[in-house]
């Protein structure tokens, strides 16, 4: 059995758990706890360990999706989770500009862990106050080659599109390395 891993990361409450839940064939295994910090009480519970979803491709191949905990005090887990990943997805809540700086920090940190392809998912694009993906690209200082994709983490088709775009980026990287 070959297992392939993708990491889903992003700031606190960006929609990582919803993203994985939208496509996982198993109920997402997540360790959620009631939130104690007043500053982080946007939602009632949050992921303190990690989310874990699975998509079985065949008897010999499975794709695992790992979601990183969004709170800063669990930063130490990021490098562990990133080990051996095929690529990673940075989820950004497009309606919360106060989290963009944190998203940039997370993205830059993951870039140092491995030179794997990654995409940015601009989540909550169905909200009227969402920032446009092109504006996110500029504010996150992303190079033109990095895909910034509109996303609604509650919508399975939207999540599938993000995963597919990441896989296309992986293939493009392979092509570049073959040249």
């Amino acid at each position: 059995m070959q297992a392939v891993k993708m990491v889903v990361t992003g700031p606190f409450s960006a929609g990582k758990t919803q993203f994985i839940s939208a496509v996982s064939e198993i109920d997402v295994v997540s360790t959620e706890r009631r939130i104690s910090s007043a500053a982080e009480q946007i939602k009632e519970t949050t992921t303190v360990a990690m989310d874990f979803g699975r998509i079985t491709v065949g008897p010999d191949l499975v794709l695992y999706l790992f979601g990183t905990p969004g709170q800063r005090r669990f930063d130490f887990m990021w490098e562990i989770l990133s080990e051996g990943m095929l690529g990673f997805i940075v989820i950004v809540d497009s309606t919360r500009p106060e989290t963009f700086r944190e998203a940039k920090r997370i993205l830059e940190t993951f870039e140092t862990y491995a030179s794997t392809p990654f995409v940015v998912a601009a989540n909550k694009q169905d909200h009227s106050d969402a920032w446009e993906p092109d504006d996110l690209r500029i504010i996150l200082s992303l190079q033109n080659g990095v895909k910034v994709l509109p996303c609604v983490a509650l919508d399975k088709e939207s999540v599938k599109n993000v995963l597919l775009e990441l896989l296309y980026s992986v293939l493009e990287r392979m092509d570049e390395e073959d040249r």
């Binding site: 070959q2 995963l163 597919l164 293939l171 392979m174």
Partner: peptide, 10 residues
């Protein structure tokens, strides 16, 4: 493997 993943997710 990547092609198989793409086909599965589609």
């Amino acid at each position: 493997v990547v092609h198989r993943l793409i086909e599965r997710i589609r």
